[in-house]
């Protein structure tokens, strides 16, 4: 598996650990992240990396919930908002290449679920 998911999982864990230090006595039940499809992150690899890195730690019982976001773009010429399939960056309405990516580049940590 491409090992950069390890670096990304490490960053997620550091954020979660920092928040847990601010909430003594609580444990993390789940971590919710959003991953756009225009990133080089494979959700299965990220889940594997998270599990491997949290094994035998206080986060071992937490789960990583990944929401995949499809790629959406808006055409600058005709304002059509459309989904990009097969990485074809072309407006389906007017065939313009002048488009802006509106969704799909996310690599965001959204929220944590903590329990006492």
């Amino acid at each position: 598996m491409p090992v950069h998911e390890m670096s990304i999982a490490q960053q997620i864990i550091m954020t979660v650990e920092k928040i847990l230090r601010e909430h003594p006595g609580e444990t993390c039940k789940s971590v919710h992240v959003k991953i756009g499809e225009l990133t080089a992150v494979v959700p299965e690899s990220l889940t594997f990396a998270y599990q491997a890195l949290t094994e035998d730690t206080p986060l071992a019982s937490s789960s990583l919930c990944i929401e995949s976001l499809p790629i959406l773009a808006k055409c600058r010429s005709c304002d059509t908002v459309f989904g990009i399939r097969d990485f074809e960056f072309l407006c389906p309405n007017c065939s313009s290449h002048e488009i802006d990516i509106q969704q799909g580049e996310e690599l965001h940590i959204e929220k944590l679920e903590l329990v006492s």
Binding site: Q11, T15, I19, H108, E113
Partner: peptide
Amino acid sequence: MSIITIEKKILEKNE
């Protein structure tokens, strides 16, 4: 149970 909203980029430090 509590929900902590974070909404930040995972690679924020790198960015």
